[in-house]
Design a protein around this nucleic acid. Structure first.
Lengths: 340, 340
DNA sequence: AAATGAGTTGAAAACGTTTTCATTTCAATA
DNA sequence: TATTGAAATGAAAACGTTTTCAACTCATTT
């Protein structure tokens, strides 16, 4: 910041009145004489006065800022979440500061520390794929800093959470594959340490069993990163092992497309020979050929609800607060890759 | 923020010493007696003391925070820019607050206001596609708040800028199409009001003219949004008008892929019948089939350099500062879509 | 014993606000 | 004229730090 910023003192001095009066005039306090008020406001506008944000924060013991810790930004789903958060925050006069952990555990720990020193009034967080130890998040609770988890949540921290019904979504997706006549359905998913992947796998498993099928572990892969290359290598592994399958459920669009890449290369036709279903509805799933059937997650709504829960926590502060978990419904988007 | 935060006063009271001494002890000031220092530090750790960020900002008249105004986050290029900014900022003890204007002029104006009240020490900005009036940015200069533009810059504001050599990149791309034997090259670009699009178009034009060709306006389109659908409709328009062309240069990967979509539908084979070249090296350009030739922009480096320029401005403050413009080189990535 | 001075410590101001409490002004009333 | 009280204003404290300046303690020197 530069020295040149106009303060309330400058206005007071110029008009030969006290800072108290200037403050009141600007706040619209009815105690101040109309003529004084007019003079103050006129001068404030002339000098382009802006109240000092830092001073306000200190005085009011509130920063009017929310912190967001998110593992990725280049992701249509997360982008919509952020947008939902921002819309709610802005509407209530809050700003948002985003910390991108870049799916790095170390960065996430740093981010929590950054947000722990009174810079924000509350925190919204989605943990990385690699986060197992969560003591850095517990510190928020210790300091009673309002906290809401969304999407990838921490099970044993007792606070508000907003999640997708991953189980149901994947159950429905697999169900769709079965109902379109597929008998041998492979599963390619992300790190099974994450709750969301456990649920997606469980949905897959239960859908099979509901139809009297059972899981064939030879066509199940839990990958480290859930990235494109993992999809390709998993599909390759299945085929190299001479496994028979007529469908793949990928717990991520990237895994699904990675798998399709290999299938094409191996001379298989999607969906004729093998149906493929993804998860997340990335933009690419619509543009890819064949276009990818997938699960649409309500990202905007997730952001909106998370931010609302957080603002409620912030406003309550003293009252006893009982954590809620909101579970959001998803939609199946059936496209070419599973339309036989 | 909650009431429970431990302050320097609490420590002072508990140890029966003054706040000054506590402050000095924690700052490692050698004036304080080793035993006192040890006691202070021990208690601070025990109470989990964290210095109050807001109080520090007010005292030191510096927020140790940089603001970023960026029109999109779901974009591999912008994501890398942010990453570069963050790396430099964090390394110098700065935090980053990102304002996503979502390509909305109104939002951008709000974002500038948000950052204008002393919340940040400096601002990095990339304007939206629709920004024409830039008075909201001039205010930063008026208040002498350090400002750096990157990628989509404002021509008539005199400050540091970091840009891509769009002209050269597009010249080289079109040159490549010509050298691989293409004679009739169409152009599909984004809003021509933006400097970057003017430069990309100029590169296209000059490359043609260098080889004795001239622009055929019937196969040139300057689109409103530069999005996928624009690419499709432009290609359709060219074909509906019975224009002959054997290549398309799309000034955006999305435009290029949108165009390919239509070409495929119309029975053309890419690249056999028509070569296509994109711009930006989105992840999708690698995954799409045929994979898309494109221009790789050094996003990470752009972010790094921008942040460094900004930090220099912040540190200089008083000295006279002469704005620089850095122009970064790009790389051609030739893939299937232009390999005949 | 007094003076010196190094080693420690504390009081207070400052950053820019808001807000409580006290004071001034001045017209209306007694 | 003296009193009242509403209207308007100002002084000062507070938020949590850092830092300047002043002051204290004690061993050492004269």
């Amino acid at each position: 910041m530069k020295s040149g910023q106009v303060t309330i003192k400058d206005i007071a001095k110029e008009l030969n009145i006290s800072v108290s009066t200037v403050s009141r005039a600007l706040a619209g306090n009815p105690l101040v004489k109309p003529s004084t008020k007019a003079a103050v406001i006129e001068l404030a506008e002339k000098l382009n006065y802006q109240p000092n944000y830092t001073a306000l924060s200190l005085r009011n013991n509130t920063t009017k800022t929310l912190g967001v810790i998110i593992p990725q930004l280049v992701h249509d789903f997360f982008s919509m979440v952020v947008r939902g958060i921002e819309d709610v925050a802005y509407a209530s006069g809050y700003s948002v500061i985003i910390c991108n952990s870049h799916e790095s555990y170390e960065r996430e720990v740093i981010d929590t520390k950054t947000l722990m020193n009174g810079r924000v009034d509350g925190v919204l967080a989605c943990i990385t794929k690699h986060t197992k130890d969560v003591t850095h998040f517990k510190e928020f609770v210790n300091r009673s800093i309002p906290l809401v988890f969304f999407d990838c949540v921490v099970d044993d921290i007792d606070t508000d959470k907003v999640i997708i019904d991953d189980y149901e979504a994947s159950y429905n997706a697999v169900n769709h594959l079965i109902e379109t006549g597929r008998k041998h359905i492979a599963y390619i998913g992300g790190p099974i340490s994450l709750l969301i992947n456990q649920n997606r796998y469980k949905g897959y498993k239960d859908a099979l069993e509901k139809h009297g099928m059972s899981v064939n572990d030879n066509i199940v892969a839990h990958c480290e990163t859930g990235d494109f290359a993992d999809g390709t290598s998993s599909a390759k592994k299945f085929m190299d092992n001479n496994q028979q399958f007529d469908a793949i459920f990928g717990a991520t669009d990237m895994l699904a497309i990675g798998a399709i890449k290999h299938l094409k290369k191996a001379g298989k036709v999607v969906p004729h020979d093998i149906s493929v279903f993804g998860f997340s509805n990335w933009k690419i799933s619509e543009l890819y050929e064949p276009s990818l059937s997938t699960v649409d997650q309500p990202g905007y709504e997730m952001g909106r609800i998370s931010a609302e829960l957080l603002l409620n926590q912030i406003r309550n502060e003293d009252d006893t607060f009982s954590p809620k978990t909101e579970i959001l419904k998803t939609d199946l988007i059936v496209r070419e890759s599973s339309t036989i």
